[in-house]
């Protein structure tokens, strides 16, 4: 780790903290933001996600080594964390910290895109194929949830009242059904990102996800697996990153749900 890397990391942390602080500041005046920040986990989740986003964007500044380079396959395999190798090295003598930083791009990107199936048309073949595969298989749960929600909303009194006022089907759907179904849909989508992330990790772990040597958190765990007893750091840190993101997403999803639902107001 060079001084420049440390400085960039500090900047990323400050940016994340500053974003959360600025948004919380709005909460003083705006009801909706106040509801969003009602739970402390939401602030933490938002901070962590912002931080990781900054890390993904600034990866070249944060990574002291080329994440795919095998530094010294004879002498530098499975080194424990040190000031040079912040999180140690993996069995192929690659710097775990650098791979983790670059893996953030892949893992966060695939998580976000996988949840938005629409992006499945983008290029970049193996990556796109993975996104498509995940996107195509993970919408079932959400659609069932949405369907159940819409069916129950359709019977609600205010929908009948809106029709009695002369609202047409599109107006009823856009103004009365969707906004009331939005909270569960968004929560499900946020949790979906977490699921997609886990799915990517599992697929990469099985060797059919992100192709090597590119780093994703999933294939880092796969690569580190053989020496998990002697060098746990090469599996532990990507695992920790995955858990952090999934928990953060849950926290933010809770906040979004509260913000969208005026009945939750104190």
């Amino acid at each position: 780790m060079t001084l420049g890397n440390w400085f960039a990391l500090l900047v990323a942390l400050v940016v994340a903290a500053e974003v959360v602080r600025a948004l919380r500041h709005r909460a003083v005046r705006q009801e909706r933001w106040r509801r969003f920040f009602r739970l402390r986990t939401t602030s933490w989740g938002l901070g962590i996600l912002t931080f990781l986003l900054a890390v993904a964007l600034a990866a070249p500044l944060l990574a002291p080594f080329d994440p795919n380079r095998q530094l010294d396959i004879v002498h530098l395999t499975n080194r424990p964390p040190s000031s040079t190798f912040l999180l140690g090295t993996d069995p192929l003598s690659r710097d775990v910290w650098s791979r983790l930083v670059y893996g953030t791009r892949v893992s966060l990107g695939i998580g976000a895109l996988g949840a938005l199936v629409a992006v499945a048309l983008g290029d970049g073949l193996p990556f796109a194929a993975l996104v498509v595969a995940i996107g195509l298989t993970s919408w079932f749960g959400t659609s069932r949830l949405v369907r159940a929600e819409v069916l129950s909303l359709r019977q609600r009194d205010f929908v009948v009242a809106a029709r009695a006022l002369g609202a047409g089907s599109s107006r009823v759907i856009v103004r009365h059904v969707l906004p009331n179904a939005a909270a569960p849909i968004i929560v499900s989508a946020a949790l979906g990102v977490g699921n997609v992330l886990l799915l990517e990790a599992a697929l990469s772990f099985l060797g059919i996800g992100v192709p090597p040597p590119d780093a994703s958190w999933g294939n880092m765990i796969a690569d580190g697996m053989p020496s998990i007893y002697t060098a746990p750091w090469s599996t532990f840190f990507p695992g920790l990153a995955i858990s952090l993101v999934v928990m953060s997403l849950n926290g933010v999803a809770d906040g979004v749900r509260d913000a969208l639902d005026p009945r939750e107001a104190p």
Binding site: D157, A161, A164, A167, R175, N180, L260
Partner: peptide, 19 residues
């Protein structure tokens, strides 16, 4: 509907859209 003939319902609690 709503223009020439309008209607009000029994349950004011549930006949308004909460959002």
């Amino acid at each position: 509907r709503g223009n020439q003939i309008a209607m009000i319902f029994q349950e004011p609690m549930t006949s308004l859209n909460p959002v």
